[in-house]
Amino acid sequence: MNEQRRQILQMLAEGKITADEAERLLTAVETVEEPDAAPARGKARPKYLRLIVDANDEHSGETKVNIRVPLKLLRAGMRLAVFVPPQALERANQELVKQGVPIDLTEIKPNQLEDLVDALDDLTLDVDQTDTKVRIYCE
């Protein structure tokens, strides 16, 4: 645990700041820290998320989709999600419950989202049907 985090937790323990303020400060500290500062692995870390769809439908003919999304873009988007107003999250929660998906979006923390994007490095998804092929992987 670094010194800044320790100080924030200390202030929280002493009641100088609220839990919400502490969370914001911790998020700010994480933002300042370089995300790629993790110990170097043997292989190079993937930079892009790739989605390839190859479908052949009788109605619309052959369809090809090839999308490359930088993982940095995903991380930046996830960080921006922190700024979604709580009232918007509440509304989204209500709509999700209506659709039968009881997920509480307010419980999802920025750290968890970061971990999710980091875990994408090892993701490979292959769907192979007779007329459709979908491949999602990191490169």
Binding site: K47, Y48, S60, G61, E62, T63, K64, V65, N66, I67, R68, V69, P70, K72, L73
Partner: peptide, 9 residues
């Protein structure tokens, strides 16, 4: 680095 490619018919 972002890239989008779509082809249909």
């Amino acid at each position: 680095g972002a890239r989008f490619e779509f082809e249909q018919g």
